[in-house]
C-alpha cells in the first residue's frame, strides 16, 4: 500500500512537469516576455529600456529554455522555465506581476473558499442522496416520474440563473441576507449562507440523477432480490442494503473533488464578493496576471492528482476486495 502510494506520487512528477511545459508554451510561445512587458507598461511608456527594466524586475529577463551565455549547468538553470517552474515544486510561488506574494495570498484566501465549498459539498450530498432515495423508493409512481423530470429541468438551468435568482429573491426582495461581501469569524455566516444554498440547489438536478442511477444499479442485483424474498420491508432493503452498497461509488466519486474544494468556485465567489481563490483567479484574469494564473494552474493540477490518489486509496478502504498493486 505505502509502496503503491509512493509510486503514484513519483508518477505525478512527470505529469506536473508536463503541465508546466504546457502552461509555459501557452504563455510564452504565444506571447514573448517583451509583449507582456509592453502590455503591463501601457502604450505611453514603451521604450526598449523600460521593457528591459520591467523584465528584470519581474524575473522575465532570462531566455526561455536554454541559456547559452551561462556556464555549465547554468545553461539549463538560468532560464525562465527552470526559475519559474522548479520553485513551484517546493511550493515557492514567488510574486505576482504586480508584486504581491502569491503564496501568502493563497494561504489567506483559501479559508473563505473552504467556508463555502465544504458545507456545499456535505449538505448537497445529503440532499441529493435523500432525494434520490425517495425517487427510488417511490419507483414507478407519479412521484418518481415528477422527480426525474424535475431533475432534468433543474440541470438545464445555468448556475448563473440560480445565483441571480437567489440574490434577487433573498437579498433584494426579502432582504434576509446581504447581497455580497464577507467577514471574518462567526459574522461570516450571514454572508456564506446564500452562496451555500445556491450551490446546493444548483447541484441538485445532476446529483439526484447520478445517485439515482447508482441506487437503481444496486437494487437490480441478486442480493437485493434475496433480501426482498426474505420478506424484508422495502425501507429496510433500501436503507440497510442498497444505500450501504451504493455508497461505494458515491463516496469514491466525492473523494476526487475534495482536494479541488480548495480552489473555490469561480461563479459563486465572484457573484457574492467572497475573497476566496475563485475570485482571486478571476481578478488575475481581468488583470492579465500570468504569474497568478500559472500558479493556480499548477496548484489545480496538484490537487487533482492528489484527488486521484485518494480515490484509489478510498477504494481499498470501502471495498476490501480491491488491492492496489
Amino acid at each position: 500500500m505505502i509502496a503503491y502510494i509512493i509510486r503514484r506520487i513519483l508518477y505525478a512528477i512527470p505529469i506536473l512537469i508536463g503541465v508546466n511545459l504546457l502552461t509555459f508554451a501557452l504563455f510564452f510561445f504565444v506571447n514573448s516576455p517583451n509583449d507582456m512587458a509592453r502590455l503591463h507598461l501601457g502604450v505611453k511608456r514603451v521604450t526598449p529600456q523600460a521593457i528591459a527594466e520591467w523584465k528584470a524586475e519581474h524575473g522575465y529577463d532570462q531566455p526561455l529554455f536554454y541559456n547559452a551565455a551561462a556556464a555549465g549547468a547554468g545553461k539549463l538553470t538560468h532560464t525562465l522555465f527552470f526559475q519559474r517552474s522548479v520553485k513551484l515544486f517546493v511550493f515557492d510561488f514567488g510574486r505576482s506581476d504586480d508584486g504581491r506574494d502569491i503564496g501568502s495570498d493563497i494561504r489567506q484566501r483559501m479559508w473563505p473558499s473552504l467556508a463555502i465549498q465544504v458545507p456545499t459539498l456535505v449538505l448537497g450530498l445529503a440532499v441529493c442522496i435523500s432525494m434520490a432515495l425517495m425517487t427510488v423508493f417511490f419507483r414507478g409512481t407519479y412521484l418518481d416520474a415528477t422527480g426525474v423530470v424535475l431533475a432534468v429541468v433543474m440541470m438545464s438551468i445555468s448556475q448563473l440563473f440560480y445565483v441571480i435568482g437567489g440574490q434577487y429573491l433573498f437579498s433584494k426582495v426579502l432582504r434576509l441576507v446581504p447581497i455580497s461581501g464577507y467577514d471574518t469569524g462567526l459574522s461570516a455566516i450571514k454572508f456564506v449562507i446564500l452562496p451555500i444554498a445556491v450551490g446546493i440547489v444548483s447541484g441538485i438536478g445532476l446529483g439526484v440523477r447520478l445517485n439515482r442511477t447508482f441506487f437503481l444499479e444496486e437494487s437490480g442485483k441478486d442480493y437485493v432480490r434475496t433480501a426482498r424474498a426474505k420478506g424484508l420491508s422495502e425501507i429496510r432493503v433500501l436503507f440497510r442494503h442498497v444505500l450501504k452498497n451504493a455508497m461505494i461509488p458515491i463516496l469514491t466519486g466525492v473523494v476526487v473533488v475534495i482536494p479541488t474544494l480548495f480552489t473555490g468556485s469561480l461563479i459563486l465567489e465572484s457573484f457574492f464578493g467572497i475573497p476566496g481563490l475563485g475570485s482571486y483567479l478571476i481578478d488575475a484574469i481581468r488583470a492579465q496576471d500570468f504569474g497568478i494564473v500559472h500558479v493556480m494552474v499548477f496548484l489545480g493540477s496538484v490537487l487533482y492528482i492528489v484527488g486521484l490518489i485518494l480515490t484509489d486509496i478510498s477504494y481499498t478502504l470501502v471495498d476490501p476486495r480491491v488491492r492496489l498493486g
Binding site: I15, L16, V19, L22, T23, L26, F27, V30, N31, D35, M36, L39, T260, T263, L266, L281, I285, Q288, F290, V293, M296, V297, G300, S301, Y304, I305
Partner: peptide, 17 residues
C-alpha cells in the same frame, strides 16, 4: 490533470494578449 476551466483560461488569456 489541469482543471478544464484553468486550461481554457490560460489558452484564451494568451490568445487575447
Amino acid at each position: 490533470s489541469i482543471p478544464s476551466v484553468l486550461l481554457i483560461i490560460a489558452g484564451i488569456l494568451s490568445l487575447n494578449l
